[in-house]
Design a binder for these strands. Structure first.
Length: 916
RNA sequence: GCCCCGGUAGCCCAAUUGGUAGAGGCAGCUGGCUUAAAACCGGCCAAGUAUGGGUUCGAGUCCCAUCCGGGGCACCA
């Protein structure tokens, strides 16, 4: 028998599939379609285990759907614009285009070893001018129709990256890529009006997405219901505020504006001006992070007053940085009695606290005596016409006091009902080179002109220098020099687009790369859209996944799917709802974390140094160290020459002297301190932590089929978990077992036929189980079922208890079910006895009769405790089961002297006799 | 601080609508093969489900509280 040699098998089949065009997907209206999509990678240059974990199970799912009879599209491409290419250009003096092309080439080669059914003829790379031509075109379309606009706003500026960032790219006041603080700046930039779609984006009714991701998007959009209220100021202007609690307006005793608010100048008295100016200057100089880290509530009085519209009272206007210019109107009414932040501010600055909600069944609150804001149930009080209206904890109009207050505001012309969102418009400008150019020019008066379609694409110039740190586009004369439509001189826009723009429409790019008249061929779109199953990482929950939904909705509203809808109708398919959402179903894989590793056991000799030691000699030992050592134990951590060694009474700090000797018996030659292995915790893989698992090494050792199998078997896919280098052997044994089952001829024994029924039952139960599990992304349990079948078959072969026919059915079914997971090995075995590819074959047919059990094991309980187990015919009815149970001598034993009160029968499973 | 998800053999991980806690894998033990080891083949072992209460004939599953781990949001008016 030929030994299982994954190296030759896998390479041979990858080449043959390619040559046969097995994974070309073409429109075929006679068959149902399935568009399976997995997130495209950034071409960083090396495929890591995370890519395998994301892509190969997605591939198995796509293959499974193909075996279910679907015409499957499963494309792949590269999200190839972005900062790392530019950093490489600066650090290594390589042009981003060359660096990127090299990485794509390398990753494509690595990706082929995964054995995925990617249709490479449909590959796109977002940095390819043939692709970004359409990214620009979408921008132009959006700009012409008011979806894109240029506006001034307070934006996040990263000094490190020399660019602005979208709100979504800033976490805790720090840029999410580098962790460096960002500062707030007023700048004129390009935005997309994603806020126009806020309400529609909150509607997940038509899509099957994970709850957690829907929740993250809901939180991000942050819809809150309330009212806009206008406070008049002496100059005649009004300060508009947004509040979710208009019912507490009568308790608004002061106002707070964001320091950047436009009315601050007007309101500030001469007396207060120096303090206000100083505070504003101080705020502007601080980063978002520093503002957040502030413990207390700082702020200064402007000297100005505004009129509370509900009672005509003059309330002082303050500025404070706890009010953000970027949320609501940048101004709040402060109700210290019922809002904790306002309460703290009032306390810090000696402002009036006026309670206007009285807790249920209690005396009215005393503002001077309160220790915290009251935010509970109660009734309105000291609120003029609304006294006595109850308040609950519901949001918006669902709260009677809020509803009454809104009605009052409307009737008295003091405000209006309003909805506010946390979501801001999507800032897409980036002051970088390696991105899609923005097709706009500015004439000599600074007027914007969007380029006509025949001017596209604006191509990035190749001859650029990256020395200054600024985008080379800003100093590239030939690029800068442009003209308006009527041929007046103009300056070209030098900002490029956020790379999330490129990935917002790539699912349409795959439909027809190279198509000329439009971003995609409507005939392809009519058949393939929408994406039926999307897979990818949850880290994109509020960026890519929100942007692409917005993008599709905006495209729909601008009519970019109209031709496709027409084509759909022509083929008899109803386009209703087909273009409201880009991805009908989404599943998110978890993350593979680094493997836990014990550190070396070390013995050290040296001089005491405070609580620790200065080591002159460090030796790696087995178990306990020599008795004369100063200290011995596991190396828990090490940074440079400072080690933390687990001593008998806890961690001990050890400095390794410059001239210390380090001896590591397993590493010959001279050793140094950096070769000592320290304990690794379970955490994300990263090069700096040294816990990266290289898939190429695993593929070389075990083969892609084993790696694929193991990634699907070893984890709950949507959860992920730490890598474990031991357990992959189990998956490898499984693959080898199946290989042997397929290669070794089956010899029926003397008792052939006796085991037929049992093996067929196992086979068909497995078909049902695996089909269900693969459908629902439960690859781990599906594979466990296949391993069980393997065990049954090994036993059957050993005993020779089944006929050759039944054996053949079992083997064929096993190969078919394993084909999506281990495509190479199953193909090799399949083609030994079949014409054509196993990957074009159908999923085995489930035979319910064959799967049925003859007998069931009836569990008999007395008062909920198992007292007997009886095998009964599977077709027994409830009365039979009850009679069987009551006839059991064990039951009689346990009910002796008691009266049977009740008998509970669970059909086909259990009888519980209740007696006392 | 608020919101989600999770906690089951030594480890990873299963357990239809509440119905015998165990499918699968790893490790371990043991026998075979081998000069020996690895590999391979056969067999065996395993927890009462984080903790405390409740509902129920019956709870890993439902409810309440607490602890631990992971994730998201966070001066959001």
């Amino acid at each position: 028998m030929a030994k299982y040699d994954h190296r030759s098998i896998e390479q041979v089949w990858q080449e043959r599939w390619e040559a046969e065009g097995l994974y070309r997907s073409e429109v075929d209206w006679s068959r149902p379609k399935h568009y399976a999509l997995t997130m495209l990678p950034y071409p960083s240059g090396d495929l890591h285990i995370g890519h395998w974990y994301a892509m190969t199970p997605s591939d198995a799912r796509a293959r499974f759907m193909r075996m279910q009879g679907y015409n499957v599209l499963f494309p792949m491409g590269f999200d190839s614009f972005g900062l790392p290419a530019e950093n490489a250009a600066i650090q290594r003096n390589i042009h981003p285009a060359i660096w990127t092309a090299g990485n794509i080439e390398r990753m494509r080669t690595q990706m082929r070893t995964m054995g995925c059914m990617f249709d490479w003829e449909r590959e796109v790379a977002s940095s390819d001018p043939g692709y970004y031509r359409w990214t620009e075109w979408f921008f132009a379309e959006f700009a012409r129709n008011g979806v894109a606009y240029r506006g001034e706003a307070t934006v996040n500026w990263s000094e490190t990256l020399q660019t602005v960032l979208a709100n979504e790219q800033v976490i805790d006041g720090k840029d999410e890529r580098t962790g460096q603080p960002v500062v707030q700046r007023r700048m004129e930039q390009w935005f997309f009006k994603i806020t126009d779609y806020a309400d529609e984006l909150l509607d997940f009714g038509s899509i099957d997405w994970p709850e957690s991701i829907k929740l993250m998007q809901r939180n991000w959009i942050g819809r809150s219901e309330g009212a806009h209220v206008d406070f008049a100021v002496p100059s005649g202007s009004t300060i508009r505020v947004f509040t979710t609690r208009p019912d507490t307006l009568w308790g608004a005793t002061f106002m707070v504006l964001a320091p950047e608010h436009e009315l601050v100048d007007e309101l500030t008295s001469d007396e207060q001006r120096p303090a206000v100016e100083a505070y504003r200057a101080e705020t502007a100089a601080r980063t978002e992070l520093e503002r957040l880290e502030d413990e207390g509530k700082t702020g200064v009085f402007t000297g100005g007053y505004a009129t509370n519209p509900v009672n005509g009272e003059q309330v002082p206007v303050w500025i404070a940085d706890y009010v953000l210019m970027g949320y609501g109107t940048g101004a709040i009414m402060a109700v210290p009695a019922h809002d904790q932040r306002d309460f703290e501010f009032a306390h810090a600055h000696g402002l009036t606290i006026a309670p206007v909600i009285t807790p249920e069944g209690a005396e009215p609150l005393d503002g001077g005596a309160m220790e915290a804001a009251y935010v509970g149930l109660g009734t309105m009080s000291a609120s003029g016409p609304l006294d006595g209206v109850p308040t609950n904890l519901e949001k918006g109009r669902a709260n009677p006091s809020v509803a009454a207050a809104i009605d009052w505001l409307v009737e008295n012309d003091a405000g209006e009902e309003a909805v506010n969102y946390r979501l801001r418009d999507w800032l897409i400008s980036r002051q970088r080179y390696w991105g899609s150019p923005i097709p706009a020019v500015y004439d000599e008066d600074g007027e914007i002109e969007i380029l006509a379609d025949d001017q596209l694409p604006v191509v990035l110039p190749d001859d650029v220098e990256f020395s200054s740190g600024r985008s080379p586009l800003t100093t590239h004369q030939p690029f800068l020099e442009a003209a308006t439509r009527d041929n007046r001189p103009a300056r070209r826009e030098t900002d490029t687009m956020d790379t999330f723009m490129c990935s917002s429409w790539y699912q349409y790019g795959y439909l027809s790369p190279g198509f000329d008249g439009a971003p995609f061929d409507p005939e392809e779109a009519a058949y393939w859209l929408p994406v039926d199953q999307y897979t990818g990482g949850a880290e994109h929950a509020v960026m890519h996944l929100l942007y692409t939904r917005f993008f599709t909705k905006a495209m729909r509203d601008l009519g970019h799917f109209d031709t496709a809808a027409e084509a759909m109708r022509a083929h008899g398919r109803d386009p209703e709802g087909a273009f409201d959402e880009p991805m009908r179903a989404l599943r998110s894989q978890g993350q593979i974390l680094g493997e836990e590793r014990p550190g070396d056991s070390v013995a050290i000799w040296g001089e005491p140094d405070g609580d620790g030691w200065i080591a002159s000699r460090v030796v790696v030992v087995d178990g306990e160290g020599p008795a004369d050592a100063a200290l011995a134990g596991e190396l828990r951590r090490r940074t440079e020459r400072t080690m933390q060694v687990a001593g008998p009474d806890g961690p001990v700090r050890v400095e390794v002297a410059e001239d210390a000797t380090v001896e590591i018996p397993s590493i010959p030659g001279e050793n140094d301190v950096t070769q000592l292995k320290h304990h690794l915790e379970i955490q994300r893989m990263s090069k700096s932590k040294g816990n990266v698992v290289n898939p190429d090494v695993l593929v070389d050792q075990y083969g892609a089929d084993t790696v694929r199998t193991h990634l699907m078997f070893g984890y709950d896919w949507e959860k992920g978990g730490p890598w474990d280098s031991q357990t992959i052997t189990g998956s490898h044994r499984f693959i080898q077992d199946v290989w042997r089952l397929g290669m070794e001829a089956y010899e029926p024994g003397a008792k052939a036929g006796e085991g037929d029924r049992a093996l067929r039952r196992a086979v068909h139960q497995t078909i049902a189980k695996v089909g269900h599990d693969f459908e629902s992304f439960a690859f781990n349990t599906g594979l466990a079922a296949l391993m069980t079948l393997r065990n049954e078959m090994l036993a059957a072969r050993k005993s020779g208890s089944v006929t050759a026919e039944v054996w053949g059915e079992a083997l064929e079914s096993l190969l078919l079910m394993l084909a999506p997971v281990a495509p190479h090995m199953t193909e090799e075995l399949w083609r030994r006895s079949h014409e054509g590819s196993i990957h074009a074959a159908a999923w085995p047919t489930f035979d319910e009769e064959a799967a049925a059990e003859d007998t069931i094991r009836l569990v008999v309980q007395v008062n909920g405790k198992v007292r007997d187990q009886i095998d009964v015919p599977a077709d027994s009815n409830d009365a039979d089961l009850e009679a069987t149970a009551l006839a059991s001598p064990r039951v009689a034993e346990w009910t002796d002297g008691k009266t049977v009160r009740k008998v509970i029968v669970v059909p086909g499973r259990l009888v519980n006799v209740v007696a006392n």
